[in-house]
């Protein structure tokens, strides 16, 4: 299932639909996510009447920019069949690291590379443990989670305000197009999604990532650079964690060591809802973006309703369940076919 045919069927007879479903089994979960997103958006519009506004939709990207960056990194890891639990605490660590460095007068051009480097370093550690020491990704990234969270508190026990204009510019600047606006943080998030999607779809590295997820053994026998790629996906995820730390710091105007507790679960949920298979081998970066939008929309709807924010996680948990059951059915069917 690595090769995907790109032409869409023109006819809409039942046979064609079946054929489409059989041929594009790996796209189906992502299509389902888009359908859910559309249903949720239309439902909210019907219910509230003023939901689908330019302001609201722009805010959706703004509020979830950091989540989107994390989801891109996580997609790489999950497609290889791994998992990265460390992203939330890496984000907290790099965020507080950056804000403390700024507070002590370090120039921005040192701070931002340091934040990205800090994230990438933790990612490298996880990748090396996974690849060279046969540690399960779950446990290796668990060590990363502890390390990131602990280091965040080592840097500072309380929140540190950011007064650097360069960082705050990322959040406060708004480029308007009619009523729509986008902030530099939103642009960064979309850029990361674009780079991630292009890398996964059209580069040798991306093909290798899919191949490892499909069958690591086969990938190795084919002579692909499995070891390098497997370490690299964790480095990418760590790097995304560092970038998310920057975006979140800009968004909240402060670094806080308790940021991102439980974010790793939200990210995994978004990626799965976006149609990436947790067993690896199938998934799309664009799907993860849709997953983040679904998550963000649910969050917005709940605050519109004025209900408890705890409902967000209950609904996302239910959606997650729905998607993994659907995925299991799809995998079971395509296993029968092949």
């Amino acid at each position: 299932m690595t090769a995907q045919t790109l032409e869409a069927p023109k006819t809409s007879s039942p046979g064609a639909i079946k054929q489409f479903a059989a041929r594009h089994a790996s796209v189906l979960p992502t299509l389902a996510a888009i359908v859910i997103l559309v249903i949720v958006l239309i439902g909210a519009q019907v219910e509230f009447g003023n939901f689908l506004t330019a302001r609201n939709m722009s805010a959706l990207l703004l509020d979830n920019a950091y989540l989107m960056v994390l989801a891109v990194g996580m997609t790489f890891v999950i497609v290889t069949g791994g998992i990265d639990l460390s992203v939330g605490s890496v984000m907290a660590f790099t965020g507080i690291l950056g804000s403390s460095m700024l507070a002590s007068g370090t120039p921005v051009w040192i701070v931002i590379p340091a934040m990205l480097g800090g994230g990438a370093a933790i990612g490298t550690l996880i990748g090396v443990l996974v690849q060279y020491f046969n540690v399960q990704p779950f446990i290796a990234s668990l060590a990363g989670l502890f390390l990131g969270r602990g280091l965040a508190y080592v840097v500072s026990l309380s929140s540190v305000r950011v007064e650097n204009e360069g960082i705050l510019w990322l959040q406060t600047t708004r480029f308007y197009l009619g009523d729509w606006y986008i902030t530099p943080t939103g642009i960064i998030a979309l850029l990361v999604v674009a780079i991630g999607a292009i890398t996964m779809a059209w580069t040798r590295f991306g093909r290798t990532v899919y191949a490892i997820g499909g069958s690591e053994q086969s990938a190795r026998l084919m002579g692909l650079s499995v070891a390098r790629t497997k370490v690299a996906v964790y480095v990418i995820s760590g790097l995304c964690g560092g970038l998310a730390g920057l975006l979140l710091t800009a968004y909240s105007g402060a670094g806080y060591p308790r940021n991102g507790i439980g974010t790793e679960l939200d990210v995994i949920a978004c990626v799965v809802i976006g149609g990436t298979l947790l067993t690896g081998g199938r998934g799309y970066v664009l799907g993860s973006m849709i997953g983040v939008f679904v998550f963000g929309t649910i969050k917005t709807i709940i605050s519109f309703m004025g209900a408890e924010q705890s409902w967000t996680h209950i609904i996302v948990g239910a959606l997650l369940l729905l998607f993994i059951v659907v995925q299991r059915a799809i995998v079971a069917r395509s296993d029968r076919n092949t």
Binding site: I83, F138, L265, D266, I268, A269, V272, L278, T279, S310, W311, T312, H313, I314, V316, G317, A318, L320, L321, I324
Partner: peptide, 15 residues
């Protein structure tokens, strides 16, 4: 998969 199956409750349970 156990990780995912229990992740559902881990997310929803606290809510």
């Amino acid at each position: 998969q156990p990780i995912i199956a229990t992740l559902v409750l881990m997310l929803a349970g606290r809510g």
